[in-house]
Nucleic acid binder design. Structure first.
Lengths: 210, 210
DNA sequence: CAGATTACCTACTGGTCAGTAAGCTTGCAA
DNA sequence: TTGCAAGCTTACTGACCAGTAGGTAATCTG
């Protein structure tokens, strides 16, 4: 036995300190490139001290991923994940909020892509995450489509994936060019366009020919 | 000096062999995690042999990135990058083509995200790449908008970034769930929705309320 | 065919890193 | 108060890895 909740409040607090430092380090260097010593230094420990709390680097990584979600939810208050139109508005709001926390955005961007590499410990986490998110967006689309009297399950599936995709892709571009790409505004534009594309399909591109 | 074109045709060919192997290795393991020995093994050399051809791991990485572009262009034949409507159709076609080459897609996905980490050698390459691509898509939008008698430079800038973003984001989801996400179809849907969103802005999401 | 250059290899170096072992210190608990 | 466990530390290990040195064989060149 080992991994129970730490005994003292002080230790509990230290774990959270380590998690925050790890988000920063893994975000800025990647999870394979960032080292335990980097994390330890930020919280005034040696790397062995960090291992005392988390057992292994891999366990630390997984706790970091879980922690990000939990912190995310906490930051956006009690409002549990909304449905229908509210979900899309929530996603847009999230994009605007994210424009003020490059650290977390970078951690998420780097780690999610890293997760597709061979035997990456975070792979399952991100698979589950995208599956869940796509389901939620799909349900929101279904609710909205029902209200508008539209049905096209193919468009809904593509739209759900596309909305998550633009958000991720815009984050990457914003990280590379923060002064050029407006994360919130561009996300709002794209999400609106995609939602409209599902509810009121426009013409195919071919129709613009000549 | 040193870095000229290799003398013999055989060496020229070996370099290309190494580049192809490096795309695969860096794609499947990331550029920091993939080793020179991994690359060397695939082409029947030792890691010192690879260094003989490329000087350092960093130089190899940069040549890999340049090579991908060149191979991309070659594969899509002489048709140099088109403008206007043709560009969007070209991007959609590229998405369908990419659905048959997970290796290159993964390399690109992993390396582009990795590039935002501290002091990554590929950073400048990806900065330039996105700047160039956004400019091309922007010009295509301007051409199309002129033909349709629309002007909204803000929408164009957001649309250009968003189109590149969906493509990247869908690739990531497709790499995680190839059986669930349809790369070509979803990209086509999203690009069409965004182009329509620029040319014929739909209602704001608020208007769907209740 | 002689000399030089290329294309490697083997062997080594220096550095980094995760994880382990063993011991010291502090503080709660009986 | 004693004692044991939690929370560290220092020190070490083994593994991996990029880059270098120096040699050898093959090939090109004059």
């Amino acid at each position: 036995m080992a991994k129970e909740t730490p005994r003292t409040r002080a230790a509990q607090h230290k774990r959270i300190e380590i998690l925050k430092a790890a988000v920063e380090i893994f975000g800025s260097k990647g999870s394979t490139n960032g080292t335990l010593a980097d994390v330890a230094e930020q919280v005034g420990l040696t790397h062995a001290g960090v291992l005392h709390h988390f057992g292994s680097k891999q366990k630390l990584l997984l706790e970091v991923l879980a922690y990000r979600d939990q912190a995310d939810v906490a930051e956006l208050a009690e409002q549990h994940i909304p449905g229908g139109l509210e979900l899309f508005l929530h996603l847009i709001r999230t994009a605007y909020v994210n424009a003020h926390r490059p650290g977390i955005v970078q951690a998420y961007t780097v780690l999610s892509s890293e997760s597709v590499t061979e035997g990456h410990p975070g792979r399952e986490y991100f698979e589950d995450r995208y599956t869940t998110l796509r389901r939620e967006v799909t349900e929101a689309f279904e609710e909205l489509c029902a209200a508008e009297g539209v049905t096209d399950s193919g468009a809904i599936a593509h739209g759900a994936a596309a909305i998550l995709a633009v958000m991720d892709g815009l984050q990457l571009q914003w990280l590379l060019h923060p002064e050029v790409v407006e994360l919130g505004e561009a996300s709002e534009f794209a999400i609106t366009a995609i939602v409209n594309g599902v509810l009121h399909p426009g013409p195919a591109l071919e129709s613009y020919r000549k």
